[in-house]
Design a protein around this nucleic acid. Structure first.
Lengths: 223, 223
DNA sequence: TGTACATCAGTGAACGCGCGTTCACTGATGTAC
DNA sequence: TGTACATCAGTGAACGCGCGTTCACTGATGTAC
């Protein structure tokens, strides 16, 4: 019964190319490659321009391959957002450590916040979109909460509020004002609203605007 | 030659429904309906959830109908963004007029800025996305420039800068700080980051945070 | 006031496209004995 | 050290879907005379 055998798809005329070392069957680092491809794609085309197939294509892999690492497309996006928040929180923590008193801690954090957004626009945009979307990725929630707590702690130090105390209305206002101003500046810059001011000047202007909010800090107390 | 006649698609068995007054062939207000459907759809599904076919479906019209009014899908989005900026600029102008001196003018504008964003989240998000995208809609550019100039004029009044003068570094900083803080607050609120604070309190907090920036205004001069 | 005709504003079928995901499969790797 | 076998990480074809746009068409409206 030749027919039965013919059901198996027949390779086209040419010999199948032999696998070379350069392109083994198991890649080992596919997970990292997919993450990198995702960031690159979002950088080029925006978050809406993302597609799982295009990412697979860029990683040189079949469209079904990513599912083994991330489940579905949403899983990949959540993972990228998680990694973003992890690095973001690290950057804020490092900046905070550079500050010598509450005012400079907040100033450094603000510079780091905007610096991160401008250096990693794809990540930054995706991070907040995923968080808003409520992706059920526990790491994402943990790391974004950590980022927020770094800001909150500096505000607590600035206002002399103990960890078990509620922030005063003014403290809460200060926290929100600081967050808003850096978040807004980052968005305006990423949206291209600030393009008339060149790169250097754009980030330099932060040294002017951050103090407008931060000069309202109560006298620094040992944090 | 019956065959030739049969090429014309044959209506299915039932009589074609007679057009009623309630559903005339020419709608007259289809343009407005499409715009309203677009805003409703974006409100529900986000800007990415928009599709021309779904909008047509909601307006009760065939997928080809919108092309007669807006050209293509992008044309419809640009138009909605344009209308958004027009209303936005109007709201800022009205707020500005309510202010009695530069400080209160800016305060009122800030409240109006965030108020608009929270009352029309779909429009607000789309507006800035379209502007960033650089949609070639002249009305959009005109109206967004008008909105910006309302803010700029109040800053000029606050800093005593004549229309033909360049803003000082401090004036530019003040402008950017004000814009950033309201833009950032609006984004945080729309992204759901402020959900722990209820609606009333959310907008009330603006009365706390705006002064953090605005108290730095030089003494008000007759504007 | 009527009529011919151009233009406007719809229809609905069809197009080709890229998408996410599923499926049966197989090569590569790791592990137990 | 070898070998059997389970599991891991890929392939590539196929699925059904919704999309934006095009097309030939036609009913409704407006205008010139």
């Amino acid at each position: 019964m030749e027919l039965a055998m013919a059901q198996k798809p027949v390779k086209s005329g040419a010999k199948p190319a032999r696998r070379t070392k350069a392109r083994p069957y198991h890649l080992g680092d596919l997970k990292e490659k997919l993450i990198a491809a995702t960031e690159a794609l979002i950088l080029e085309k925006g978050v809406d321009g993302f597609s799982l197939r295009e990412v697979a294509r860029r990683a040189g892999v079949s469209p079904a391959a990513p599912s083994h690492h991330f489940g579905d497309a949403q899983g990949l996006l959540a993972e990228v957002a998680y990694l973003g928040f992890r690095d973001f929180a690290d950057a804020l923590a490092a900046a905070d450590a550079r500050g010598k008193n509450p005012a400079t801690r907040l100033h450094e954090q603000g510079l780091a916040y905007v610096g991160f957004a401008l250096s990693h626009p794809a990540r930054f945009t995706l991070m907040f979109r995923q968080r808003a979307f409520g992706a059920g990725h526990t790491g994402l929630e943990t790391e974004s909460a950590r980022a927020f707590s770094i800001l909150e702690n500096a505000i607590r130090a600035a206002t002399g509020t103990a960890p078990d105390e509620h922030l005063s209305q003014d403290g809460f206002g200060l926290l929100l004002a600081t967050w808003s101003i850096v978040h807004g500046f980052a968005h305006l810059a990423l949206e291209g609203q600030l393009d008339h001011a060149a790169g250097e000047r754009r980030i330099g202007i932060l040294d002017v605007i951050l103090p407008l909010t931060l000069q309202h800090l109560p006298a620094a107390r040992p944090g």
